[in-house]
Structure formats: C-alpha cells, structure tokens
Amino acid sequence: MGAAVARLSLAAGYDVAIAGSGAPESIATLVRHEAPGATAVTAADAARADIVVLAIPRGKFRALPVEALAGSLVIDAMNYWWEYDGAVPELSDPLTSTSQTLQSFLVGARVVKTLNHMSVYALEHEALPAGASGRKALAIAGDDPRDVAAVCAYVDAIGFDPVVAGDLSTGVMLEPDTALFAADETAEEVRAILDRFWDSQRGRVVARARAARLE
C-alpha cells in the first residue's frame, strides 16, 4: 500500500519521502527499488511533509511519533484486522471509527480517512485523469472542511474522484466488513454504497451501539 501510494504521488508530481520504523539507511534500497524518485527519511522528517500518509499495520499506531505529527495533515490509510493486529478493544468499538481512535492518540494532528478501502491493485492500475469515463472514486472522512478539501485535491491529483462521506465518525463506513471495503467503484456507486450503510448489518450494529450510548 505504502509503495503504491508513493508511486501514484510521484506520478502526480509530488515530492515523496518514505519513512520506516528505523533509520533511513535500513529502507533506502527498498525505496529505490519500489518507488524510484522517492527519498528515505526519518519518521520525524516525514512528519513535516504537507501531507503525511500512514500506511503501517493498524495495531502499531501507538508507535507513531505523536509530537512530530502535531500540526500535520495526516491521511489514515490503515485498516484494523484482529487476525493480524490481535484483539484491540478500542479499535473494534462500534461507538467510534478507528480513525477517531487515531485522532485521539495523535493529539494536535489533523486526521482524515481515505485510501484504505480500495484494493491495492485498483490504486496501482486504475488511476485516471479527471473527467475520464469510468474513473474510480475514493471516499473521504474528516472533521475539518479545509483538511478534507486538501485531501480531496490530493486524491483527484493521483487519479481518483473524491467522495466526501462526512466527519471522522463516518470513517466506520470505509472500514473492513462494510460494503464499500474493497469495492473499486465510480463516484456514483460509492455514494450509493455510503447511502446504504445504515441498512447494512454493520450499519445496524453501529447504529444500535450509538443509540444505546445516548439512552
């Protein structure tokens, strides 16, 4: 996922820096091979980018540099898989989206959810110019309209139609076990899937939990 997003960003004319969990030297060869033109940097250096894309295992989000990311516009492209990440109650709580949990942890950062629900194949091979017939769409969820607008512009630049789902709580509609997840669709169909969310099994579970909280 990280490499695919890096290549898309490079093709769109962005300067791209990639960081891992260790020193830049530990990933330099991989970066040259997987994303020619990108630069291997420290996590602290990557955090100073105009847009930071998080594409690490969701269960490791507490290893992120909170202070370095304060003030940064952060795209949450991560998904929670209990089979891989282990059971993490705060990430499976239907009262919140996983992006809200991330936002609570990354104090001072500005989190926007996108890039996570489309298959890596579609990201890699189905990007198209704006206005092209059959162009695929990416749903976006975020609390600040200015940040959402900035991410919409980025999504459009890398080859996909942006579809705003709502605030960060609606990021639950983009997560695994929803109809949108792994659905590589046009903007019209993405909107239709989002509209049907509350009638789905996952939507009903979330709605019941959130209604009970208000009682």
Rank of each mutant, 00 (worst) to 15 (best):
R110F: 06
L128Q: 08
V148T: 07
D93Y: 06
T98W: 00
S92C: 07
L115Q: 02
G86T: 05
H117P: 08
A127S: 14
G134H: 06
Y80H: 14
Q103T: 07
P94Y: 01
M78W: 01
V120C: 06
Y154G: 12
L128A: 13
V151L: 05
E90P: 06
N79G: 10
A150W: 00
L123T: 07
A122V: 10
T98S: 14
P89W: 06
D143A: 09
A139I: 10
V112Y: 01
V112S: 09
V88P: 00
D144E: 12
R135V: 10
N116Y: 01
S133D: 08
D93V: 11
W82I: 12
V155Q: 03
A122N: 06
E90H: 09
H125P: 10
A132K: 04
Q100D: 12
Y84F: 11
R110A: 14
H117M: 09
V107T: 14
T101E: 10
A127C: 09
A149N: 02
S104L: 04
Q100M: 14
A149W: 01
G134T: 10
V111T: 09
W81I: 13
T96Y: 08
A137P: 01
D93P: 05
G131E: 14
V151P: 00
R110N: 15
Y84S: 15
G131R: 04
H125S: 12
D143G: 13
W81T: 12
D147I: 11
E83W: 03
V148P: 00
N116K: 00
V88E: 03
A130Y: 05
E126V: 09
E126I: 08
V112H: 02
K136M: 13
C152D: 03
W82S: 15
K113Y: 10
D156V: 12
D93W: 01
A130I: 12
D85L: 06
P89C: 15
V155M: 03
L115C: 09
L115K: 00
A130C: 02
V112L: 04
T101S: 11
I158Y: 04
V88K: 04
Y154I: 15
W82Y: 05
A109G: 09
A139E: 08
Q103R: 02
L138D: 04
A87G: 02
T114L: 07
M78K: 07
A150Y: 00
R135M: 06
K136F: 11
A132V: 10
G159T: 13
G159D: 11
V107E: 11
P89G: 15
M118V: 15
A130N: 04
A87Q: 05
A157V: 13
C152N: 03
A109T: 11
E83K: 07
S133T: 11
